[in-house]
């Protein structure tokens, strides 16, 4: 498996380029086809609307048998994303399935922006704020 790029990755990349998802852009790095530069726009109606967020996505050697590694490069105020941009999302951890794809992972991340989950927080202060004063938290998110 080490030699060359698995067919699955090639196919996924092709499809991402040919039929892009609205609000999501994923471009493979020129020197490493397993590394993607991702841009996600904040979903409509969420505090992140009109925001543009850069992410990096890396497909490890075992992909698709283990989950891609994804991280926010742009700072974001969100209860499930910490200061370093690490994301708390079950499908990136124990709920990963090889039947998922880069496309579905990015869609899930976009959905996480619309619906934060303050009960499973990574950034405790943000989650606390979100629970006690949602309006103020959303306000901070806008900045």
């Amino acid at each position: 498996m080490a030699a060359g790029l698995p067919r699955r990755i090639i196919k996924e990349t092709q499809r991402l380029m040919q039929e892009p998802v609205t609000g999501i852009q994923a471009i493979p790095d020129e020197s490493n086809a397993r590394y993607f530069h991702v841009v996600v726009t904040g979903p409509e109606g969420s505090p992140y609307e009109e925001g543009v967020f850069k992410l990096e996505l890396f497909l490890p050697e075992e992909y698709p048998m283990s989950a891609p590694k994804v991280r926010f490069m742009t700072k974001i105020y969100h209860p499930n994303i910490d200061k370093l941009g690490r994301i708390c999302l079950d499908i990136l951890k124990d709920k990963w399935s090889p039947a998922l794809q880069i496309r579905t992972v990015l869609l899930s991340i976009q959905a996480l922006l619309s619906a934060p989950n303050p009960d499973d927080p990574l950034a405790n202060d943000v989650a606390e704020q979100w629970k006690t004063n949602e309006a103020k938290a959303i306000d901070t998110g806008y900045l």
């Binding site: 075992e62 048998m65 283990s66 499908i91 709920k95 399935s97 090889p98 039947a99 998922l100 579905t104």
Partner: peptide
């Protein structure tokens, strides 16, 4: 795919807990 999937799971230390490859199964 099954073969490779099981290999990776065993290398990560999962044995009796290996689940179906499908999402949410």
């Amino acid at each position: 795919c099954w073969d490779y999937f099981c290999q990776v799971q065993i290398q990560q230390g999962t044995t009796l807990g290996i689940q179906c490859m499908a999402n949410d199964c």
